Computed example of a mutant assay.
Amino acid sequence: MIRVMLVDDQEMIRAGLRAIIGAHPELEVVAEAGDGLAVLRQLDEARPDVVLMDIRMPGIDGVEATRRIRLTRPAERLRILVLTTFDQDENVLQALRAGADGFLSKGAGPTELTDAIVSVAAGDRALSPSAVSAVVEHVVQQRAVDVDPALAARFAELTPREREVVSALTAGLDAAEIAERFCLSPFTVKTHANRAMTKVAARDRAQLVAFAIRAGIRPD
């Protein structure tokens, strides 16, 4: 059973999340907190596997709470999934830099939410399409840089299909949308993306997208 701690300053939102998570056979809500300082006080007693963290809260926000958690609890001990209505690029980047393992919009459906928790608990990263788009937008709007020849050489090792999937990811499409575009199953899309990550030594989908842009790959 995956132990989940809910961190959100709105009780109604916590109640909704509790109902969704409680209905999943692999998940269990073991604690709740209404602000960033409260979560720090409860971690030792609650012993969660995953913290579902809001960003905008009183006291200290979710980014700062994540940063403080990471001072004593590395990702191998505790996973953090940021859940927020604010998906601007700076929020995404700050959360990931602070040590978050995933970023999901509060507009996500119940299945997307529980799948993300299970994925993060298993050691993977979870990024909503809007989060990927924000990362892409940030990279694209940065000062123009020359194509990185070392990264370009890595991406040259991809198969044509893997390259198509990567290009679609840089457009912010999710697995289902890419599957529909190329008449594939979502599982096959994820397989191509995982193989691409392995070939270019990207640790997660966000880094894969950033590497692709630096290698000269852009959305079709």
Rank of each mutant, 00 (worst) to 15 (best):
L27F: 07
P25M: 11
E45F: 03
V51R: 03
D35N: 15
V39R: 01
L40K: 02
H24Q: 13
Q42W: 02
R41K: 12
D54W: 12
V29E: 07
P25S: 13
V39I: 05
V30N: 06
L43C: 09
A38N: 04
M53V: 14
M53K: 13
M53E: 11
G34C: 09
G36F: 04
E28I: 08
D35T: 01
L27T: 06
D54H: 13
E32A: 00
E26K: 15
G34W: 05
E26M: 11
V50N: 00
D54G: 14
D44C: 05
R41H: 11
R41P: 02
D44Q: 14
A46D: 05
R41G: 05
V50T: 02
A33Q: 13
D35S: 08
E45K: 08
V30S: 05
G34S: 14
R41L: 11
R47A: 14
D49P: 04
H24F: 07
L40M: 04
L52R: 00
L27E: 02
P25D: 12
E45T: 12
D44H: 10
A31F: 05
V29K: 07
E45P: 04
L40E: 04
E26A: 15
D35H: 13
L40T: 02
R41F: 04
E45Q: 14
V50L: 08
